[in-house]
């Protein structure tokens, strides 16, 4: 622990010394390691494929054409309750027609045995409305922000659902955002994940995408833009906040 305090103090000193050029200085703790966070998209426990029809437990037939979301503000917590907030952690996870990005390698993680991971889906209020203060992977030019209401689309799910009345597959789109829908996910691990300069930590989560449609009436709510807590957008946000579970953990010697 002393080491971590020394590291923080020395960083503060450096920031003080170099003044406004601090953000160009890369401070690397020689003891630090990496932590890989992966989120596997599944539907009814099988790997999600785009444009393939699935049926939810409630009997809704759907397929996705794209799924994109911001993973932000990752915090790793160790057995002693000490936590490491990953700086500028804003990542765009996506499964689209052009590819899959569902993993990030976090570097500079202080050595420790980590037992919990916290992250959010979406962008916190401090970074959600000024589209010129972009940190991490936040980018206002990747079709994951709104211009009419300056802010980021937290999660975008598009595809088709079976409309029983019209007896056809109709389009659905859910573009969820607005500050109320910023959701934080807490994952506690049964064991711990070792990270140090010789061990890279690894956590694989499952995102059960069928849960997005829990308690949703798609024949009515097939086009959602924005969102408040007490609306179908709010229901879907609760759904994605609870769809993550641990698939596997590990620590790999470099």
């Amino acid at each position: 622990m002393t080491k971590r305090i020394v590291w923080i103090v020395s960083t503060l000193l450096l920031v003080g010394l170099v003044g406004c050029n601090a953000d160009t200085v890369e401070e690397v703790d020689p003891e630090s390691g990496t932590f890989t966070l992966t989120i596997e998209h599944v539907f009814n426990d099988t790997p999600l494929e785009l444009s393939v029809d699935y049926t939810t437990e409630a009997g809704l037939t759907v397929h996705f054409t794209q799924l994109r979301y911001w993973v932000s503000n990752v915090v790793l917590t160790d057995a002693e309750g000490l936590s490491f907030a990953v700086p500028e952690s804003y990542y765009l996870f996506e499964q689209t027609g052009t590819g899959l990005r569902n993993s990030v390698i976090i570097t500079g993680v202080p050595p420790g045995d980590y037992t919990g991971v916290t992250f959010s889906i979406g962008v916190d209020v401090d970074h959600n409305h000024s589209l010129d203060t972009l940190v991490g992977e936040l980018d206002a030019g990747v079709d994951m922000s709104w211009s009419w209401s300056s802010g980021f689309i937290f999660l975008k799910a598009e595809g088709n659902y079976w409309n029983d009345v019209e007896q056809t597959m109709n389009v659905f789109k859910a573009h969820l955002g607005f500050d109320d829908l910023y959701k934080t996910v807490d994952i506690s691990l049964e064991g711990s994940i070792r990270v140090d300069k010789t061990h890279g930590g690894r956590l694989v989560l499952s995102a059960e995408t069928s849960m997005l449609f829990d308690d949703m009436d798609m024949t009515v709510d097939h086009s959602i833009v924005g969102g408040s807590e007490d609306s179908p957008a709010g229901t879907m946000a609760e759904n994605y906040a609870s769809c993550f579970s641990v698939q596997s953990t590990g620590s790999r010697k470099n």
């Binding site: 409305h129 000024s130 589209l131 010129d132 206002a140 709104w146 211009s147 009419w148 300056s150």
Partner: peptide, 14 residues
Amino acid sequence: GSFDLESQVYGPLE
């Protein structure tokens, strides 16, 4: 809908 002039620019631009 836009909180500052900086962010407003993205509207007409895109």
